[in-house]
Computed example of a mutant assay.
Amino acid sequence: MQTLNDEVKNLYGGNVRVRVSGIYIVQDQVLLVNHSLYGKEQPFWSPPGGGILFGETAVEALTREVREETGLEAEIGDFLFVNEHVRPPLHAIELFFGIKSVRGKISKGADPEISPANQIIEDVQFLRLEEIRSFPPGAYHSIFSRVQSLEELFRLDKFLSQLETLI
């Protein structure tokens, strides 16, 4: 059984969290961030994103999160879909947007809510769908299991729900 990072569990567990995430595709590769939510030996690759702060719009939050996680300045595009992720103790409503363009140099960022000793961002890369699917189950965001090509991410149903139970 996977054990969630204690600091992540204390910050986000037991509450419904509203998150934003961005899909940015270049030359059949998507921008992803590797989070060590369950320990450094268990990667979790997902599009850049994070929680919306009080008083922030979804677009402002996504712009900030992309900068914090990847070092890139993003121009946010259209709203794509909502994904509900329930994997106790985490529960998130994720608003996905397309990213039109980015400026700057890609770099591994940091999560300001998490202490320096417990940082969970391990890497930032552009990956092809085949590369993503070569990872073990649970090592990448569930949206990549719903598509046959990265372009299909822009045509998913407007509401996706995923309930996972830990065994």
Rank of each mutant, 00 (worst) to 15 (best):
80 L>S: 06
93 I>Y: 13
7 E>T: 03
35 H>E: 14
73 E>H: 10
97 F>C: 05
167 I>G: 12
140 Y>M: 09
67 R>F: 14
124 V>C: 07
150 L>Y: 08
141 H>N: 14
129 L>I: 05
132 I>W: 07
28 D>G: 01
90 L>R: 12
30 V>K: 03
165 T>L: 14
149 S>H: 10
105 K>L: 06
110 A>N: 09
48 P>W: 07
63 T>M: 03
154 F>N: 10
41 E>W: 01
35 H>M: 11
86 V>P: 00
44 F>C: 14
160 L>Q: 12
136 P>E: 09
149 S>P: 04
107 S>I: 03
24 Y>K: 06
129 L>Q: 08
39 G>F: 04
114 I>G: 00
30 V>W: 00
73 E>Y: 10
138 G>Q: 07
125 Q>G: 02
38 Y>H: 15
59 V>H: 13
86 V>M: 09
61 A>L: 02
166 L>F: 10
84 E>L: 11
59 V>K: 15
64 R>G: 04
37 L>R: 12
18 V>D: 11
13 G>V: 00
70 T>P: 03
49 G>V: 00
158 K>H: 14
77 G>S: 11
23 I>S: 01
50 G>Q: 08
91 H>C: 13
25 I>V: 11
25 I>C: 01
132 I>D: 07
135 F>I: 00
80 L>K: 10
116 P>K: 05
127 L>E: 09
125 Q>D: 13
60 E>A: 07
70 T>F: 06
81 F>S: 10
123 D>V: 00
7 E>R: 03
146 R>D: 08
14 G>C: 02
161 S>Q: 12
1 M>K: 07
88 P>D: 12
80 L>E: 08
97 F>K: 05
155 R>F: 13
21 S>D: 03
97 F>G: 01
108 K>E: 13
92 A>T: 07
128 R>Y: 06
117 A>H: 03
148 Q>F: 06
139 A>S: 15
65 E>M: 09
158 K>W: 11
56 E>G: 06
125 Q>W: 04
157 D>K: 15
2 Q>D: 00
102 V>L: 05
41 E>T: 09
16 V>A: 12
62 L>D: 01
143 I>G: 00
5 N>A: 09
18 V>C: 09
25 I>K: 10
60 E>M: 08
116 P>E: 02
107 S>W: 02
128 R>E: 12
58 A>N: 06
11 L>S: 08
112 P>W: 03
95 L>G: 03
141 H>W: 11
42 Q>E: 07
47 P>A: 13
111 D>L: 07
33 V>S: 11
159 F>G: 04
123 D>A: 13
36 S>K: 07
135 F>L: 11
148 Q>I: 01
38 Y>F: 15
11 L>T: 06
33 V>G: 08
109 G>C: 10
108 K>I: 11
148 Q>S: 15
89 P>D: 04
125 Q>T: 06
26 V>T: 12
83 N>A: 12
94 E>I: 11
68 E>V: 03
28 D>C: 08
16 V>T: 11
41 E>V: 02
61 A>Q: 05
32 L>H: 06
129 L>N: 05
143 I>C: 02
155 R>L: 14
79 F>N: 05
79 F>Q: 03
163 L>Y: 15
136 P>C: 02
102 V>W: 01
54 F>L: 14
26 V>L: 13
109 G>Q: 05
61 A>C: 10
72 L>E: 08
1 M>H: 08
96 F>Q: 05
5 N>V: 03
19 R>K: 15
161 S>F: 13
19 R>A: 01
166 L>S: 15
148 Q>Y: 03
21 S>M: 13
62 L>V: 12
